[in-house]
């Protein structure tokens, strides 16, 4: 009961609640936006390493496309980051 009364005492006002909700939403947006590219980059790099180990003579081509693939995938995380900057930071 004491804990509940303490929570009630620090209840947020309307504006503060809005800000808190925006910060929580932005945090989720950034976090979730970073998961997909993390999986994507892992997949790209894993397959590239496999390809380079199997066929070392094609390593130059594989590394170039891998680097671009990583950068394109990372763009998704950057979009999430920008949303985070704009609404929650």
């Amino acid at each position: 009961m004491e804990a509940i009364s303490h929570i009630a005492a620090v209840a947020l006002t309307g504006d503060e609640q809005k800000k808190a909700n925006a910060a929580i939403g932005a945090g989720f947006a950034y976090g979730i936006a970073a998961i997909g590219p993390g999986i994507g980059i892992g997949y790209i790099v894993g397959k590239s390493v496999e390809a380079m180990a199997r066929q070392p003579e094609a390593a130059g081509m594989v590394r170039t496309t891998m680097f671009l693939g990583i950068a394109f995938t990372e763009a998704l995380a950057l979009i999430g980051f920008v949303v985070f900057i704009l609404i929650g930071l």
Partner: peptide, 25 residues
């Protein structure tokens, strides 16, 4: 080694995102 490269890319992704966040924060 390619194994190290893979690890460095994956951790590098996290580190670069953290650096970007810090630079803006």
């Amino acid at each position: 080694s390619l194994g190290l490269m893979m690890g460095a890319i994956l951790f590098g992704y996290l580190i670069r995102l953290a650096m970007l966040f810090l630079a803006v924060y």
